[in-house]
Design a protein around this nucleic acid. Structure first.
Length: 198
DNA sequence: AGTGCGATTGACT
DNA sequence: GTCAATCGCACTA
């Protein structure tokens, strides 16, 4: 697969714009068994001053990667067992980021199937915890620069993305009405209930 | 030291 | 569709 990393200077600084920009880009994972990758089909923006964002109450040990220059990984555990992959956004020192919620599998599908313990293509990376498991993403990747080739990085795709739709975010209670979720309309690899996929 | 709560998932009706 | 498991983290004292 011929793909090049996204260029940091081309990333939109604004968090919501970055969330939209990342739809259709590639997440590439370099594992000992081979390359695993997929197209991003769903993201959520956790913007500056967002009560639902992990940086809302300032920097802590867990969320410090959110304050890095845009294009770095913020990886944390939700509900005790599921890892979540985020891309930091905004200027250095500003805590905001984009949650990558779902991938359409592209390369290394047999590796994903082993990592997930399921075969069905649609179930491999539909949902943020499943995505991280499929790509074997854990806390050791927290803080990584995603704009250069390495164990985990973001790449350009030559495929046309399709229509990008907007909705409220999934699984939060505070600031729940803000339309900050981006997804490819009708794409079967998008998570959430039916009404949030069409 | 104790408490409450999730940016979820998988099993089940 | 419903619901419980699960445990790290932030907050209170």
């Amino acid at each position: 697969m011929v793909t090049v990393p996204v260029v940091r200077s081309e990333l939109p600084i604004d968090t919501a714009s970055l969330a939209r920009y990342l739809i259709g880009k590639l997440v590439v994972r370099d594992l000992p068994e081979g390359i695993v990758s997929g197209h991003i089909v769903e993201t959520e923006a956790y913007v500056i001053g967002d009560a639902a964002g992990h940086a809302y109450r300032g920097m802590t040990r867990r969320n410090r990667s959110l304050f890095l220059e845009c294009g770095h990984a913020y990886v944390y555990i939700a509900y005790g067992s599921s890892f979540m992959l985020n891309v930091s956004s905004e200027m250095p020192g500003i805590g905001a980021g984009v949650l990558i919620r779902a991938l359409e599998p592209l390369e290394g599908i047999p590796i994903m199937q082993l990592n997930r313990g399921v075969d069905r293509l649609r179930d491999l990376a539909r949902g943020p915890g499943r995505l991280a498991a499929a790509l074997r993403i854990d806390g050791r990747l927290d803080g990584l620069d995603l704009c250069r080739k390495g164990p985990l990085w973001l790449g350009h795709s030559d495929r046309e993305a399709g229509e990008i739709a907007l909705s409220t975010r999934i699984g939060i209670s505070r600031d729940a009405d803000r339309p900050l979720r981006f997804y490819l309309r009708g794409n079967p690899f998008v998570s959430g209930p039916k009404r949030l996929r069409e």
